[in-house]
Every structure is written in structure tokens, then in C-alpha cells.
Computed example of a mutant assay.
Amino acid sequence: MAFSADELRVLRRALATALNPAPLQDEDVQDCLRLAEAVDDAVREAGRLRAFLLADLARYREALPGTLPGYLELLQDALAAGYDPAADDLAALRALRANPRAAALLERCQVLAERSVRARLVRATRATRAVAPAPRTRLLALPGGRSAADEPKPATPKPPVPSKPPAPKPSEVFPPRRRPVPPPPPEERVAG
């Protein structure tokens, strides 16, 4: 982003005012607002240009290998603009590595993709640490609790109840099975 001489003058005055707060004249306030609006417009335009470039890059990637020179040039422009190569870009470059320009660009993209992954991992680790709960503090007894007079009197102990042996008998766990009664012989059956 480049500033004109007038915009630099306004920016310099705004920075001086931020460092040494003082009342501003209405003209200075209007100049700062116009500069802020111009910067916002430039940022929006850069976003639109980036979206167009990435859409164009995707179209060229879909039409490979016939669009190899155009794709390589667009990818270099996108990388220069801060684009992190996607998995599709790496796969396309791997398929085209017979071309020396594509092979060199593949090496560059692999380095950039690795940096991008590492940066995301660092951010994720930091976010996880920020979300992790703080260790619990120990509870301390405060004065003014129950006194000895408030304590309940201990009950008289009851005599111990004899306990059962710890292991149950097999007959308690598995009751005996009743044997089925055999059917009566055929001659004793009554015809009905």
C-alpha cells in the first residue's frame, strides 16, 4: 500500500497526536477520517483482488496440464501476495514436476506449506493453553467455624455384628437345576 504526500502528512499528524494527545482542529479530524476511509477502501480492494486471483488460480489448476505456463505464473503471483499453497496446488505441482519451473515451484511451495502448518500448530497449542483451567487452589479453614460445644456427642458403640464369610457357596450362586421329568411311555397315553 502506498500513500500520497498529503496522506503521509495526515498520517504523521495523527501519529503525533496519538503520542502527545492534544485537541485537534476540525480540519485535522476530517483529514484523519478521509485517510481512514481511503485505507479501508484499499483493504477491501486488496481482498477483492486476492479473491479474484485465487479464483483464477483454481480455474487454471482445473485446466492443467494445458494451462501450465499461466498456472505457474499465477501461483507465483499468489505466493508473492502471501498465499499459502493448498493441497491441490501441491498435488498439481507434483504431477507436473517434469517441468523444471514446476519442480522449483514445488520445492518452494512445500517449504511454505510446512511453515504454514507449523504456524497453525503453534496457534492451536497457544489457544489450548489459554483455555486450560488454572490449577485449583487449596481450601483454607476460616476462623469462626463450629466450636467444641456445637459438636454432636458420639453415640455409644453397638456390638459388632458377626459377618458372613466373604465367599458365597456355589449352591448360593448357582442353584441346583431340576431335572426334566421324562414323558410317560406311549401305552399310558390316553387317546382322546
Rank of each mutant, 00 (worst) to 15 (best):
A2M: 15
V111C: 07
L96C: 05
R108Y: 03
A167I: 11
P160Q: 05
L35F: 02
P166L: 06
L75Y: 02
L79N: 13
G192S: 09
R12K: 11
N20R: 15
L35G: 00
L106P: 00
D28R: 05
L121Q: 12
E151G: 02
P85G: 04
R115W: 08
L106N: 02
K169N: 03
R118D: 12
R115H: 10
P162A: 06
P165F: 09
A78S: 03
A81K: 12
L33I: 11
S116C: 09
R123V: 14
V181P: 03
V39L: 13
V131N: 13
R12F: 13
R9I: 03
A22G: 10
D31G: 07
P165G: 07
A130M: 01
Q30K: 10
L11W: 03
D41N: 14
A132P: 06
L33N: 13
P165Y: 10
C109K: 00
Q110E: 15
L24M: 05
A155L: 15
D28K: 09
G145H: 00
P175F: 05
Y60L: 13
L49T: 11
P159C: 06
P133F: 05
A51P: 04
S147P: 00
Y60H: 12
P133G: 09
A127M: 08
E172A: 05
R118T: 06
S116F: 02
R126A: 14
V43N: 08
E107D: 04
K153V: 14
P23M: 02
Q30S: 07
E151S: 04
D77L: 11
A102Y: 00
P65D: 01
